[in-house]
């Protein structure tokens, strides 16, 4: 099939040097951009999600006001369209990194967009831990801190990893958009080479590559979930 495409196109698809010379670096840039953003998103989003759970009515330290505020923050954060967030953050990104060019340029917007997204998913995951287990830990004399990390987060680990997988894949999609502000990666290939220079073959191939990446990450995520899940 590949031969057929090559024979028919000549200078397009896999013989398109604009594509072949850039694709390797582009994949790595996108993966780097998404990985760093997801890491920040999870590291900040998890505590935020936990805080929502912690202060909820059935949480360890119910606090109506704090809970309401945190919920609003999480929901507003998710309500802002990514493209708006990205454009709004151009100034911040320039101040932080000196420029929006290069794969790092997409990180601030992706990371900040990711935080409330993962926070909500994490909160849902932790809320799924039966109250009885929390009470068992309370009766064992555990502190709230010990219960939060040793029971709630630990018991929710499979769900938290599944949520991280969803987050990672969603971020791959959003990272394509950052190509429009010059933030490298596959998004750059799509926008500056495929779209601007009207090379449909590049668009098609990038989509195929993204599809493979998404599938690989999903499989990896499922694998980790299976490892952590001892309930079946």
């Amino acid at each position: 099939m590949v031969e057929a495409i090559l024979a028919a196109s000549g200078g397009t698809y896999f013989s398109n040097t604009a594509f072949t010379s850039r694709i390797g670096a582009a994949i790595l840039e996108t993966l780097g951009q998404v990985a760093v953003s997801a890491l920040v998103g999870v590291v900040v989003g998890l505590p935020l999600g936990l805080a929502v759970w912690y202060t909820a009515r059935t949480g360890l330290a119910p606090n109506r006001l704090v809970n309401r505020i945190l919920n609003v923050v999480v929901d507003l954060g998710r309500a802002i369209p990514f493209i708006v967030l990205m454009l709004l953050l151009i100034g911040f990104t320039r101040w932080l990194l000196g420029s929006t060019i290069g794969w790092q340029g997409g990180v601030p917007a992706l990371a900040i967009g990711c935080i409330p997204f993962y926070a909500r998913l994490a909160e849902n995951a932790v809320r799924g831990v039966p109250l009885g287990k929390i009470e068992a830990a309370q009766m064992a004399g555990a502190t709230r801190w010990q219960i939060t990390w040793g029971v709630a987060v630990r018991e929710a680990r499979p769900d938290l990893v599944a949520a991280a997988t969803v987050t990672f894949i969603t971020l791959i999609g959003y990272s394509m958009i950052t190509g429009t502000i010059g933030a490298g990666g596959l998004g750059d290939l799509i926008y500056n080479w495929g779209y601007t220079r009207n090379q449909t073959d590049i668009l098609v191939m990038v989509v195929v590559i993204v599809l493979i990446m998404v599938e690989a990450i999903q499989i990896l995520g499922d694998l980790i979930v299976r490892r952590l899940d001892h309930t079946r």
Binding site: P130, G132, K133, A136, M139, A140, R154
Partner: peptide
Amino acid sequence: RRRIGMVFQHVNLFDSR
């Protein structure tokens, strides 16, 4: 509470341990 042992109706063991 460490002086009270509690056995639950739904057992409530930690599945991850």
